[in-house]
């Protein structure tokens, strides 16, 4: 798949995730949080990852940064990051999780902003302390210089009075300001990729819109790649160039945002889109649930993981064979037997 897209637009992707499997080995059994996810992130593009709760979006993000916590572990797959001066991309999945190489990438080349603006800063230190620390981790600058840069960053993300705010503690700030601070911290080392895991879920509607505007504005100015994780088809429609639809740890459909919205191929994507009345009338409606319930993570269905809930499931095929992510058109992929024949013998 990587080669196909590379051939399609002539530029290799910034990040290629190939067959990623991240499992949690708990006492109750193995949770296959990410179970063979494959997708790509192009340089300078915004990619949305969407799917119901528990489908492995956050674990995918944590896997890319290699900060999955025990008992979780990447058991298979590649995470290829293209780097400016290197010939071959580096496979993050092979790096030592606490080694210097991945730590230079974390926060330096790939940055993370996530959902909890209330608790994602430590209450024990000022915002300034925590951002300055990030800068000094990755860049060889003195305290004074790092502090000046921090003030500049705060100004850039639209924080009034940055010279004063820099010395405040997180609990002195509103949720919106805190999320701006979080974005400032993520941007502090000019990352190539910004991962935003539900960056606006915890905020009120007005603030949500402001934060999304800010993210879009920054993306356009810096030309970095953005991975935005959300439940919200409205956010996807507004923000992204490409969409990745996940279901039970797998990518079931991916493609340019227009194609996903206008010609969704996978029955799950169609159901996701059907479940919002009109994306343009009310952009930030939460996804109502789709018929049937998400299977328990410990015992996923055989064959196509979606078949118990799929209206178009074909008995004898969908419950016995596993569909593969296959191209529908140049950049549009779906994993469904409506679009390709089962190839291998069913697993015994």
């Amino acid at each position: 798949m990587a080669d196909q897209i590379a051939r399609a637009n002539g530029q290799p992707p910034m990040l290629t995730v190939e067959g990623l499997k991240t499992y949690f080995f708990t006492d109750e059994g193995t949770v296959r949080a990410v179970d063979g996810a494959s997708f790509e992130v192009q340089a300078g593009k915004t990619v949305g990852i969407v799917g119901e709760s528990g489908c492995g979006k956050s674990v995918t993000a944590l896997s890319i940064l290699r900060i999955v916590e025990r008992p979780g572990r990447i058991v298979a797959g590649q995470i290829l990051l293209r780097r400016p001066n290197a010939k071959a991309p580096v496979d993050l999945a092979l790096l030592e999780a606490e080694g210097a190489e991945i730590r230079a990438i974390r926060g330096g080349e790939i940055a993370l902003v996530f959902q909890e603006p209330m608790t994602s800063f430590s209450p024990h230190y000022t915002i300034g302390n925590q951002i300055v620390e990030t800068i000094q981790l990755h860049q060889d600058v003195g305290k004074e210089e790092a502090r000046n840069r921090t003030i500049e960053l705060l100004r850039m993300v639209g924080i009034p009075n940055p010279e004063r705010r820099i010395d405040e503690y997180p609990f002195e700030l509103s949720g919106g300001l805190r999320q701006r601070m979080m974005i400032a911290m993520a941007l502090s080392c000019n990352p190539k990729i910004l991962i935003a895991d539900e960056p606006t879920t915890a905020l009120d509607v007005t603030t949500q819109a402001q934060i999304l505007d800010l993210l879009r504005d920054i993306q356009q100015r810096t030309q970095m790649s953005v991975i935005i994780i959300t439940h919200d088809m409205g956010v996807i429609a507004e923000m992204t160039d490409d969409v990745i639809v996940m279901y039970l740890g797998r990518v079931v459909e991916s493609g340019p945002v227009d194609e996903i919205f206008h010609q969704p191929k996978h029955p799950y994507t169609q159901a996701l889109l059907r479940s919002i009345p009109s994306i343009f009338a009310e952009p930030r409606t939460k996804l109502p649930t789709i018929a049937g319930s998400i299977p328990h993570p410990h015992n996923r269905p055989t064959g196509c993981p979606f078949h118990p809930r799929c209206a178009e499931a074909m008995p004898g095929i969908c419950d016995r064979h596993e569909p593969r992510l296959r191209p529908i058109s140049e950049a549009h992929f779906a994993s469904c037997f409506l679009y390709h024949e089962p190839e291998a013998a069913p697993p015994s």
Partner: peptide, 25 residues
């Protein structure tokens, strides 16, 4: 707590991170 994930995502070494943030709390 999420701030530990934040600190990890910044690229801090685990030992330094643990002593600076959660241990202090």
């Amino acid at each position: 707590k999420p701030y530990v994930i934040t600190a990890r995502a910044k690229g801090m070494s685990e030992l330094r991170l643990i002593l600076k943030y959660p241990v202090r709390a």
